[in-house]
Amino acid sequence: MTPLTEQELHQLAMNIVGKEMEELGFEFISINSKPKKNPQFVALKDKTLHFVVVRAISYPANPVEYDQVFMNKLKDHGIKFKARTYYAGVGLANSKNYEIPVHHEEDYTINFAGLIEIK
């Protein structure tokens, strides 16, 4: 069995967040699927610009906890563009055993609390 790479985990998280944003009525302006290029999503909703940082988080780390210093820097950057800034941590775990990596051939569990606005 082959574990998912960091890029594949990130892409999975991007798909989960992107689908949620579509359902919430966001219009995508740009999408950057590289894990270290931020924000991953720049989108419009209600004529307001939104920056969204996506992170794939492996068990046992908590997907709602984020690097506050980094996110505040990105929020300050967003303010220059009159954008609201969000963090989207997607917890991913192997559904058979949380202690082993997510594999291509096995089901996985998602822990996603939605977009967290950085205030």
Rank of each mutant, 00 (worst) to 15 (best):
G89W: 02
Q7E: 10
Y86P: 06
H50R: 02
N38L: 13
P35I: 11
A88G: 07
K47I: 06
S95F: 13
N72H: 14
V64M: 09
A88W: 00
E99Q: 14
T5L: 05
I110G: 05
I100K: 14
M21C: 05
A56D: 11
E27W: 01
F51K: 08
I16D: 06
L49E: 06
P63R: 05
E20K: 09
E20G: 01
S30E: 15
A56E: 01
F81E: 14
E23N: 14
E106W: 07
V69D: 10
N32I: 10
A113Y: 10
K96M: 07
N62P: 00
E22S: 10
E6H: 12
G91D: 05
P60G: 03
K80A: 13
I110K: 11
T2A: 09
P60E: 07
N38F: 04
Y108H: 13
L12P: 00
V54A: 04
M21F: 07
E65D: 13
L12E: 07
P39K: 06
F26V: 05
V42P: 00
L115S: 12
F112Y: 15
N15K: 14
F41C: 01
F81S: 15
K19N: 11
I118P: 07
Y98F: 10
A43V: 10
L24E: 14
E20F: 13
A43H: 04
P35N: 00
F26E: 08
T2D: 10
